[in-house]
Design a protein around this nucleic acid. Structure first.
Lengths: 188, 188, 188, 188
DNA sequence: TATGAATGAGAGTTCATTCAT
DNA sequence: GATGAATGAACTCTCATTCAT
């Protein structure tokens, strides 16, 4: 992808994370990226479009991180645990990005196009969940509810770890606890 | 509390819920409340202060709702279930207010004062949780982590119910499921 | 009408006449009127609205000037000549305003509302023309075409007088000539 | 003339006519002409220069149209009628171009150079008018005033025909009427 | 010659806040 | 205390023009 476009995305992410995206003027983003104000609008037709692009970029980063070393052929629990570990790892070590992603998701600024695109990148997630249901590993419940529960616990765990600066051994222990809570909650 | 102040809070909540608080000009709030622009600033020194007051107001409403009929002397599980039920009830039936509360909490607009004040109103929650730990009902974990897990599952359940318009019998069933998931997750 | 609103209209007319309305920033208008930028938008919701208001104002001025001493009961020719004289007088002595009015009329910036309002103020004109047709004074032709012809000659006369700085006696003579051309052209 | 230059002029005319020249960015013109933004400025040093070139081009088109079959040796009235007919024909059938030409003439964007150039192309018009005065066909008046009157009536007639969609027989009749009005007005 | 990304001044408009009444 | 007109800095976005390739 284009050099300047990447710089602009990078600058946006940094500033959005630091000051919130409603409080970050496009002029500041451009300056931070080392380009002229107008240049921003050569790459993104509007601030909204830029925000959406930032979200897509962040989700992409996240996906790369989570999928690294993903044991596609392993059993459901192993796969879920991999995702769980990697997810928390990302959330804790890139909390700026993690937090910004969530903010964007909640803020009603994402276009239908962006949401559609995001869902496409999440198929691997749907796969493991469906497998779990097919193999009657999970309690009977709606798949959408299941997903929400999983993501909610994940989010709670990440935010707790960051808020209380849980690290290293303590973090590993926390993750074990969280998996335990999750599994006992959802498994038959 | 003063009449005009209440009107302003009411108007703010309605408009914030409908259009987001970044997108709601103070002038519009004042008009909606039937007072002059300047009057708003007689009661709230700034828009930020108004937003904080809105949050406090919403949390207060919520607390009233959740505490109605609260069995203070009952056992831990009963108390937790009461809170759980009433909470989901509030979230589902006043989703505007519920959602706005969450938005405000995430948006980095709450003052320390507001957060402190909020925590004070949550003592009844801490009480039941501490009792649970004292009686060794819950797995061993940090109480803050415990709280986050509970709130996260609660939030997920409310949003799922609203998104898929789960009602009546189906809602009752969902709540049972959610309690099951929670309890199996956190209880020893 | 409000004081600041009048100042803004006056400033707009001066600047629009001097530099064209596309080339006149709202900030400059406000400064010229001695108010803040924002104030302009308290009185006119947009630059477009301001432009329309300027047109209405100019047409109003024009109407006042043309109708001064209008012999409402006189015969058709006398009335037409009155209008003719006063119109050229206005065009020549307030050429800035005259020219701006025409520019605005041609520039596709006038709202339907403005056009409707203008037509209402022109009823006295329609009256004399209709009388002329009723009394079979004019050649047979569509009334709209008639009006266009009259206004076109009027415009040509004004612009010629201004371009060549025709004044006093010479101007009177020009007006006589123009009336002669018009009357011979349109009368039976 | 160069190919790309012609494309640019053509594109400009189309877009100016459709959206007004103040609202047409140079980038859009270039795109519409199928060349790069920069290329436009290889052929025209500025947007102003382009606008002037467009005017010259339009006037040239017009002249070609009006002069087709011009009876150079015929009497004054015949020649004038030829011009009159052809002019209205052009105005009605190429109203976009006609209207744009007028807009440009009024908009204070034409350079002295352009105006000088245009006057040169109008010598055939001056010739017939001078002949008319020399032969004492016309009433005594300044030649510049005479020209303005003629053009004004012409313009009024074209716009009326277009506005009311006068065509075929009705148009021929209108033209006869207009010539009648003109001739009775200006001839001794 | 042709390109089109880069520029940055400048546009119209918004809005939290003030303050004379 | 209540008012709402006035403020002006700050915002997003546009576009004629340049210039390295």
């Amino acid at each position: 992808m284009n050099d300047k476009k990447q710089q602009l995305l990078k600058a946006s992410i940094e500033l959005f994370a630091a000051e919130g995206f409603w409080n970050t003027p496009t002029a500041k983003i451009a300056r931070h990226a080392g380009v002229a104000t107008g240049t921003l609008f050569n790459y993104f037709p509007s601030k909204d479009a830029l925000i959406n692009a930032v979200y897509v970029e962040l989700k992409h980063e996240w996906r790369e991180h989570v999928l690294a070393g993903y044991p596609e052929e392993a059993d459901v629990k192993s796969r879920l645990e991999h995702i769980w570990f990697r997810n928390i790892d990302w959330g804790v070590n890139h909390f700026d990005h993690y937090s910004l992603t969530e903010q964007l998701r909640m803020a009603d600024v994402l276009s239908d196009e962006t949401i559609r695109h995001q869902n496409e990148e999440l198929t691997f997630l749907y796969k493991v969940v469906c497998d779990g249901f097919d193999q009657a590993i999970f309690k009977e419940m709606d798949i959408d509810y299941f997903n929400r529960i999983v993501l909610a616990e994940l989010d709670a765990t990440v935010r707790y770890a960051v808020a209380f600066e849980i690290k290293d051994m303590a973090l590993t222990k926390l993750i074990m606890t969280s998996i335990d809570i999750l599994w006992n909650g959802i498994a038959r």
